[in-house]
Write a protein that binds this DNA or RNA. Structure first.
Length: 260
DNA sequence: ATGGCCAATATGATTGGA
């Protein structure tokens, strides 16, 4: 069972590299972020042709998340609980029925939060608090669960090429990192860090200033695993080569293998 | 030289990204 997350930065702009990557990496489940379109505009056909079921939670122009799965998607639910006034499309979860049992999966697009301080940063921290409450409630179920997406959070200085340039950024501020630690302290495992303590593992490189050529990156796309999923973790990977390919997103896919 | 982009929006600057 291979599960991936990828912030595609517009699904319409990324259909070609997505289809090529799906054929090569062959993930069973994919969590997408920043599809940047309404549900009706999602390019379903070329993805369904590869055998994927699709669930989307889109909005016009901004944000938007989706789940792709070779197994049936059940109990699909959109929107992170905890704020009925939050209109941003940043969360979708579902139960995936595998041959060996059920797996809960969520695709998460956590707010950027810049500039900080300000309304956007306040929204980000509240969103992280809501995610904490959600995770707490779900962990009680003791299910295999993967919360995957663009967390817009740099966990530690080992996750950024040049930490001093990020000290005032919403992705790296102490409050952001404290909220991240609250999530992991609940018992969620950061899959990449469970398999490597190497510095220089990045998932995002800015389009500007030759950031990729200089490896000036950050690690902000994460897969958090419940204990019942973490026990089944066998491999992880970051498809860095996608950043140097045709029509790249500024994020690359991150994936895990679970013995499920 | 300490820069340099990309995508969506009714196509012209603005907004958002990170």
């Amino acid at each position: 069972m291979r599960i991936a997350t990828w912030n595609v930065n517009s699904i319409k702009q990324r259909v070609e590299p997505l289809v090529k990557w799906l054929g090569e990496r062959k993930p069973d489940i994919v969590c997408l972020q920043e599809i940047k379109c309404v549900d009706e505009a999602f390019p379903r056909e070329p993805i369904e042709a590869l055998g994927y079921n699709i669930a989307t939670h889109g909005q016009k122009a901004y944000n938007g998340v989706a789940l792709l799965s070779k197994f049936p998607l059940e109990e699909v639910s959109s929107g992170l609980p905890g704020d009925d006034l939050d209109e941003h499309a940043r969360f979708i979860e579902a139960i995936v029925s595998t041959g060996k049992g059920a797996l809960r999966v969520a695709s998460i697009y956590l707010p950027n939060g810049n500039p900080a301080p300000g309304d956007k940063y306040t929204y980000k921290l509240k969103w992280m608090e809501r995610l904490y409450q959600f995770a707490l409630e779900r962990l009680v179920l003791e299910e295999p669960m993967v919360l995957a997406g663009d967390y817009n959070a740099i966990p530690t200085p080992d996750d950024v090429h040049d930490p001093k340039l990020w000290v005032n950024d919403a992705l790296f501020l102490p409050d952001t990192r404290a909220k991240w630690r609250m999530l992991t302290s609940l018992g969620l495992t950061d899959a990449i860090r469970a398999t490597s303590d190497d510095p220089g593992l990045y998932t995002f490189w800015d389009y500007q200033a030759g950031a990729f050529q200089k490896n000036n990156g950050i690690r902000i796309d994460h897969l958090l695993l419940s204990p019942q999923a973490a026990d089944k973790l066998t491999a992880t990977g970051i498809d860095k080569q996608m950043r140097g390919g045709e029509k790249p997103s500024d994020h690359v896919p991150v994936w895990i293998d679970l013995d499920l």
